[in-house]
């Protein structure tokens, strides 16, 4: 990977959440999408680019949420389905292609993944996430600067 940026896992999940909202997903859907992305990252599954591609397709995430809400509808076709399955029922063993969840740990091609609370992104991914997240921030105006934060009195005392 080219020199990138390292985030804590919860910081990463918060950024995914904001990026998902910023790309137009409803809040509740964004929460599940972010939890899915964070789960993948914590087990070293490098699928952020795919996750980002899916942001432009809200129906993908609405379907994903259905698999969370009604696990019997989850037909386990891709790694996102596997994540949904493990998130809902972590004790249940699941196998899909090279991925195998034994009810506790993830193996990729037989290699055990060490869970991590860090997220490593390349600069391009970080930029794309932030670009989406930026859509959730209101442009600052002098009015909001003063009134919105509630300052205005001298705070230098």
């Amino acid at each position: 990977m080219t020199q990138g940026i390292e985030l804590s896992l919860n910081e990463y999940e918060a950024l995914l959440n904001k990026a998902a909202v910023g790309s137009g997903l409803p809040w509740g859907i964004a929460e599940d999408a972010a939890a899915c992305g964070a789960w993948l990252m914590s087990f070293g599954v490098d699928k952020l680019d795919t996750w980002l591609d899916h942001l432009s397709d809200s129906s993908f995430w609405i379907d994903y949420c259905k698999k969370i809400d009604r696990p019997s509808s989850n037909k386990l076709k891709d790694i996102f389905d596997l994540a949904a399955s493990v998130i809902v029922a972590p004790d249940t063993k699941v196998k899909l292609d090279k991925y195998e969840w034994n009810g506790k740990e993830l193996f990729i091609r037989g290699a055990k993944q060490i869970p991590s609370f860090r997220a490593c992104l390349n600069k391009s991914q970080f930029k794309i996430l932030n670009n989406h997240a930026n859509n959730t921030y209101a442009p600052a105006t002098e009015e909001s600067r003063l009134s919105g934060a509630g300052a205005g009195l001298s705070d230098n005392d």
Binding site: W27, T136, Y137, A138, P139, A140, S144, R145, G150
Partner: peptide
């Protein structure tokens, strides 16, 4: 409730005076 672009901090605005905030409303 919204988040300012400047410092990414939560802020509170008057919706009827700044209707543009509706677009950025937090949950």
């Amino acid at each position: 409730w919204y988040t300012s672009e400047e410092k990414l901090e939560p802020r509170l605005g008057e919706r009827h005076e700044m209707p543009e905030l509706n677009e950025y409303e937090q949950a």
